[in-house]
Amino acid sequence: MLALDIRNVSKKYKNFELKDISFQLEKGYIMGFIGANGAGKTTTIKSILNLIHIDSGEVRILGKNLAEHELELKQEIGFAFGDVDFHNRSKVKTLTDVIKKFYKNWNDDTYYSYLRKFKLDENKKISELSTGMKVKYNLALALSHGAKLLILDEPTSGLDPVARDNLLEIFQELVGEGEISILFSTHITSDLEKCADFITFIENGQIVKSAEKEAFVETYRLLSGKESQLSEVKELLISYKKNSFGFTGLIHADDFDPASGINAAIPSLEEIMIYFAKKEDMYV
């Protein structure tokens, strides 16, 4: 079953456009949603939460159309925005008391068990929580109302490596039983190398690729060769950088001929992101 099914979503702004966005997330998995700042990650997430009006396309969550079943589906969605605070002068306890009334499946026992597990003090104000604690608080809220799909926008940005690792372990634990699915946007690709099952890569408002993590990186090769070899593959490269030793460039695995003698390696997610961003620059 698909937890999230985004079909041909388009949205046009004055200076930016989401073009024909489509990707699917299977139930019980973590999908990393990567892209540079301004690539369209948050806009896509806002369209999933019906916060913006899409010009065309369809968002389906847990098999149901979002536009038609918004209230019902919002009962099943949990969210965390790494960089947005809500009512941050209020105490955790006060905010929870308000929020829990909106959810019919709210479970106080689950909530308090997560508070203990995450070591959250409910007498603290939201503004007194560290960035990681705020994400954990949002997770505690989502899990207490039985959310099946967690939409997390940059939840690890601004966290120290220990807190990030801790959070990633929690994400993996959550999807362990196969009931919960996570869409997790980030520009910190190393996080995804640790915990994501699927990767969706957005660049300049378009989905470049959405695939299982290993298959995703194996679609590309990172070439490094002498400057004299550059002309052989230049036209096929997604983009390249020249250096004193020659060049390095990203290429689709299908376009690469292993007999060419150029060194090829499987790129990291970060390298894929960087070379795609460079491709955009080359056309500007």
């Binding site: 939460l49 916060l51 918004e70 209230l71 019902e72 919002k74 009962q75 969210f79 947005v84 605070d85 809500f86 009512h87 941050n88 002068r89 929020i99 909106f102 959810y103």
Partner: peptide
């Protein structure tokens, strides 16, 4: 306090 976004994400019309 970002009340608009906070409210819009709740299951309310």
């Amino acid at each position: 306090q970002n009340d608009l976004m906070f409210t819009a994400m709740m299951p309310v019309t």
